[in-house]
């Protein structure tokens, strides 16, 4: 309202206030984006010299089976982690929104993975997953289940990584959802109760629609996070691991091409592919949200 009759001075003040954020976005997000886009149309000649090669990198990308496997891996990870992770977050949030004893403690416990360093997390999980000396296999052996090669079996490795990803994201999403749940006025539940709704119907007809804006935000950010999966693969799957082919994501492949192989131009093209995939998926979600997200 202050700006309705704002003079030049007010506008200057407003710009000064948003400048740090705008500058940050420009330098840290927008500039690298254009730089990557430019690089993806070049060939690296070393010593920081790049030659314009048009669509060469993209042609190579199209014919590279490793890229397409990485697309499949990335999408598989994203779908699994988002579906399982968001579902679990919602379940945990709803349970911890109830008046139960020690709910503060539980909330803290669920949030701990969020504030733990990914490297440390990966280390602990590597130990848990260890086929010979890991805790999980030890526990399974007590039920007579033989050793599972969590991280080296190509069919298991993806699932193992999804489990870690879900474990780290549940806490964060839970906090967001919990905040959303607490925004729902109690009278809606009381009205639903008078209307004859049981716990399941209250969840379906009150909780879910009313938390849908938060849920949508959680899904979108989780999807974007899932598409960018890198650290757990990097830290739990060694390059020599037989499961690498079935787990390496687009970002991991970008890292491999850019920094291990030194081909930053090809790496940039892979990033552009990821960007396009992210944009398409996000656009689809924006379109679909009209069907299930209710804004007050």
């Amino acid at each position: 309202m202050i700006f309705v009759n704002a003079g030049k001075k007010d506008w200057a003040f407003a710009y000064a206030m948003v400048a740090p954020t705008v500058l940050g976005v420009l330098i840290l997000n927008i500039y690298p984006l254009f730089k990557s886009c430019y690089l993806s149309f070049t060939e690296s000649k070393g010593f920081g010299i790049y030659k314009w090669t048009g669509l060469d990198n993209y042609v190579r990308l199209m014919e590279d089976p490793e890229v397409w496997q990485a697309v499949v891996n990335t999408l598989a990870y994203t779908v699994l982690s988002v579906v399982i992770g968001v579902f679990l977050s919602l379940v945990v949030a709803v349970l911890l929104n109830e008046k139960i004893r020690g709910r503060g403690l539980y909330r803290t416990i669920y949030f701990l993975p969020v504030v733990s360093a990914p490297a440390a997390v990966a280390m602990v999980w590597r130990w848990l997953y260890n086929a010979d000396a890991g805790l999980i296999n030890y526990l399974l052996s007590m039920f007579g289940i033989g050793a599972i090669h969590w991280l080296t079996d190509p069919r298991m490795a993806m699932i193992s990584i999804v489990i870690v990803g879900v474990w780290t994201m549940v806490g964060y999403n839970m906090v967001l959802l919990l905040a959303g749940l607490q925004e729902i006025p109690k009278t809606f539940y009381e009205a639903a109760e008078m209307d004859g709704a049981g716990p399941v119907q209250k969840f379906l007809h009150v909780t879910l629609p009313m938390i849908s804006p938060t849920l949508f935000f959680v899904v979108v950010t989780s999807v974007i996070g899932g598409l960018q999966v890198f650290d757990f693969i990097f830290m739990m799957i060694e390059p020599s691991n037989t499961a690498m082919a079935s787990t390496q994501s687009l970002v991991y492949l970008f890292y491999k091409q850019s920094f291990l192989m030194g081909d930053r131009s090809y790496g940039a093209a892979i990033v552009m592919l990821l960007l396009v995939i992210t944009l398409i998926i996000t656009a689809i979600q924006m379109k679909l949200q009209k069907r299930w997200v209710y804004y007050e």
Partner: peptide, 25 residues
Amino acid sequence: AMVFQNYALYPHMTVYENMAFSLKL
């Protein structure tokens, strides 16, 4: 049946759906 002070109408439902909800249940 109860009428609440703040009405507690389900915001995502139409007037019809609000009124029909208990009957559907």
